[in-house]
């Protein structure tokens, strides 16, 4: 008789979770490949604007990053609320751009030095004033290839949100 009691029709077999690690690993690899570690800690607000006339930038090893924006909330006590320049991982004066760019350039392999590109990452609410000063410094330093790093998107959206 027990032969017939064995299977109860209501019992669902448990869902196998054996493939769960595989799925998670797949996600993990995707994120590992798709993301780049930021090498500078952000000390300034840095929301990039959108533009549609953008080009893909050069390789990372040819880029020198300069950030401009308001100091982020925790640094406003020390640096105030006007726009500042961040070089590497510290907030600097505009006059230091010259040395910073030259140091970065000498650190590059020789065949890449003349392909160096300065990536200006400017917060969308920053004022032009500081940017103009930085550009003058870059001209002094003979770092003439620059790029205004921006997200791909409709530039008219920049003007709508404040």
């Amino acid at each position: 008789m027990s032969k017939f009691n064995k299977k109860k029709s209501g019992d669902l077999p448990p869902v196998s979770t054996a493939s769960l690690p595989d799925i998670v690993f797949m996600l993990l690899f995707f994120f590992m490949v798709a993301t780049v570690m930021r090498d500078d800690e952000m000390l300034v607000e840095n929301q990039l604007p959108a533009a549609n006339q953008v080009e893909k930038l050069e390789d990372k090893n040819k880029l020198v990053n300069i950030y401009i924006g308001k100091p982020s909330a925790s640094y406003q006590k020390t640096f105030g609320t006007t726009d500042v320049v961040q070089l590497g991982d510290k907030i600097s004066r505009v006059e230091e751009v010259y040395n910073y760019v030259n140091t970065k350039r000498t650190a590059m392999p020789e065949n890449l030095q003349d392909q160096m590109m300065v990536s200006l990452k400017v917060d969308r609410n920053a004022k032009i004033g500081v940017l103009t000063d930085v550009k003058q410094e870059l001209r002094e330093a003979q770092a003439l290839k620059i790029t205004y790093t921006s997200n791909q998107g409709d530039p008219m959206n920049n003007l709508k949100r404040r």
Partner: peptide
């Protein structure tokens, strides 16, 4: 860990050239 620590870097921009001094 990877989700939290990484940000997708923007790698596009308007390329421009400054005039020499």
């Amino acid at each position: 860990f990877f989700l939290v620590t990484t940000t997708i870097e923007v790698d596009s921009g308007i390329v421009s050239k400054l005039p020499p001094k």
